[in-house]
């Protein structure tokens, strides 16, 4: 009767335990740790590499990601399939919903899609710049690094929450003017 795959929302503890067990599998079977943000560098490198190969090869950081190694690698396959995994979960749970301007955003910045999409683009750019400086994101540092007790990751996690809490309160707690 109650097939768990049909339940729209799972307990966060069950989800967290599932991700923990998934990391056992990546370490044991694949000798890898969950991560996501490196793939965004590979994607940027591939675009620059197509437009201007010389430029891509001469940039030390991009070259380290795209010269002598495949662009579409284990993590890129993982990241792309995350979209399909979420789609599958949403369809099974009948919880898929198109959302363009989330309510917390609209409360402060209004219902404009253009404003929201511009904000999302800028937020994405800032976030990934920070992730690459720090050496990882919520997956690579937050989950994989945190569970390995990496000092780098725990510094990142504390800084991320501190800045996120501060920024969210500044951004979203006053009503739109």
């Amino acid at each position: 009767m109650s097939n768990p795959l049909r339940i729209p929302r799972w307990s966060p503890y069950a989800v967290g335990a599932g991700i923990g067990v998934l990391s056992w599998a990546t370490f044991y079977f694949m000798d890898k740790a969950l991560g996501a943000s490196t793939s965004m560098v590979n994607a940027a490198g591939a675009i620059v590499g197509v437009v201007s190969p010389e430029h891509a090869k001469s940039n030390e950081y991009l070259a380290a990601h795209i010269v002598g190694k495949p662009v579409f690698d284990w993590q890129m396959a993982l990241v792309v399939m995350m979209g399909f995994g979420a789609l599958l979960a949403a369809v099974l749970g009948r919880s898929r919903r198109v959302e363009r301007v989330p309510s917390i955003w609209a409360f402060r910045f209004g219902p404009s899609r253009a404003v929201r999409y511009t904000g999302a683009f800028i937020g994405g750019a800032v976030l990934l710049f920070g992730a690459r400086m720090a050496g990882g994101c919520t997956s690579g540092h937050g989950i994989s690094g945190g569970l390995q007790l990496a000092l780098s990751s725990w510094v990142f996690i504390v800084a991320m929450f501190a800045a996120g809490i501060g920024a969210a309160h500044l951004l979203y707690t006053r009503k739109a003017v």
């Binding site: 969950l34 996501a36 943000s37 793939s39 965004m40 990241v79 792309v80 995350m82 979209g83 399909f84 995994g85 979420a86 789609l87 599958l88 979960a89 949403a90 919880s95 898929r96 919903r97 198109v98 959302e99 989330p102 917390i104 955003w105 904000g119 999302a120 800028i122 937020g123 994405g124 750019a125 800032v126 976030l127 990934l128 710049f129 920070g130 992730a131 690459r132 400086m133 720090a134 050496g135 994101c137 919520t138 997956s139 540092h141 937050g142 510094v155 990142f156 996690i157 504390v158 800084a159 991320m160 929450f161 501190a162 800045a163 996120g164 809490i165 501060g166 920024a167 969210a168 951004l171």
Partner: peptide, 26 residues
Amino acid sequence: GGLIFGVGMATLGYCPGSAVAAIGDG
């Protein structure tokens, strides 16, 4: 990097992995 990431994540409302998943979720 963590501080910059936190500001960006508060603005975007997703992190890199969950953003791709969010596209699948609509």
